[in-house]
Design a protein around this nucleic acid. Structure first.
Lengths: 232, 232
DNA sequence: CGATCATAGTGTAGAAAATACACTAAGTCG
DNA sequence: CGACTTAGTGTATTTTCTACACTATGATCG
């Protein structure tokens, strides 16, 4: 006896949040997908997401869904776009507020076979034929990530806390899909003075060990306030 | 006998679209506001907007609202952000998908005192203490406009079809809030080859008449496809 | 009808930023 | 200890950005 308790004078759409979660697995950019076990689109991959509670801000809803799927708390999260085509969900009018997130896949390693949900990290190039309009959502997120990474240092969110300059460069090359000159890249990145050189080097590599750096978030905030910009 | 016909198993928020409509009035950047005649926020200025119909795409809802308020059809319209704080409307949960638009105020001159609605073009600098969270929405739109105008030639949407380079420069100065060097500006703008020089000049000015130009939208589309970028 | 006024329109030189490019250094492994 | 692998470094050239001031043209007014 819990059906149809909530009645309104005019019809209302459902509102969901969907999350495009990016992670970097070696040199592959991956996205977190969920295998749907019921119709519509049973058996197809979909973006994690769910309904927004009535007393819950949109961003909190996105965070909640993410924690349920990935267990990850500390991450970069930003609103992407709102998709509202009347027929994007065959069950009825569902408006989706999409977010995209960047997680340090390397730190929180609980990758596949989570929480009883069939969640998996999939190479973005393989992630096609998704449920609903999620192909479009993913493409929008990728475009945004590519555009944003050029003028804001968000790439660090995908790397472990300590990383080498080569890792960082390779990340940019992966996201932007084009090779970058090593010397020019290093000069430019270091000129931003957002990186702190650590007294440590890489361990257990079969060649000269590279210096480790960390991203100096505090300094970044200062520079943003001072009106700096950060093109790569 | 039309109350509460629409019943659901779980509660649902209302969804509205709100529009931030910018127009250029001489050297002032203005925004279209509506004086609210009922509570909440009776007597305060608000952004034009309204409920999304169940079978209507979000952008169509925004366009519909805009036509109702301004009579303007031909305009630049883009989704801005979705505002979903649970308490942004004291009457209940209302999620607002905000759009921003640029209109050629100079062409469609039916400015104030429209359609029985108390709509008015207000200098953006004067537009404060708006209803709901519309101060935030307006600020977000302004930030977006300022950022976007630097790398996409959307400024033209605010000017009449035929305009002088001085008008264009003054528009950029108004939006960006800083003076620009005349010679450098002209060189850069003309180098993009997005402007077609017209065989006409300005009329009825008490000094040397300036050459008129028009924006070549077709050429713009070609260049976008070719991966050009357009920083100013 | 000539002087005055207001804005249109134009070029260059110096500084800064972007690009292209190849070798030596250091650590591991067999 | 030689071979292998990646780390780390500098310079010259080209391109882009910036700063800057005078002449041209048309309208108006006395």
């Amino acid at each position: 006896m819990k059906k149809n308790k909530y009645c309104y004078e005019y019809p209302r759409p459902s509102v969901v949040v969907d999350c495009v979660v990016f992670g970097l697995d070696d040199d592959l950019l991956k996205v977190l997908l969920i295998r749907r076990d019921r119709d519509p689109f049973a058996g197809r991959w979909a973006l994690p997401g769910g309904f927004v509670d009535m007393d819950e801000p949109l961003e909190s809803a996105a965070l909640r869904e993410l924690k349920e799927e990935t267990g990850v708390g500390d991450l970069f999260l930003e609103q992407l776009y709102t998709f509202g085509d009347p027929h994007r969900d065959p069950r009825g009018r569902v408006i989706s507020v999409a977010y995209y997130a960047l997680v340090k896949l390397s730190d929180h390693k609980p990758v596949a076979a989570d929480d009883a949900r069939d969640a998996e990290w999939v190479d973005v190039k393989q992630a096609t034929k998704l449920a609903f309009d999620h192909d479009t959502v993913l493409k929008t997120a990728l475009d945004r990530l590519r555009a944003k990474v050029r003028y804001q240092p968000i790439g660090f969110e995908l790397l472990p806390a300590k990383f080498t300059l080569t890792q960082l460069q390779s990340l940019y090359e992966t996201i932007l899909g084009q090779p970058i000159d090593k010397r020019n890249f290093r000069r430019k990145i270091l000129a931003m003075s957002l990186l702190t050189e650590l007294p440590e080097t890489q361990q257990q590599v079969a060649h000269r060990a590279a210096r480790l750096y960390r991203f100096d978030r505090q300094r970044y905030r200062q520079l943003v306030k001072a009106g700096f910009n950060f093109e790569v």
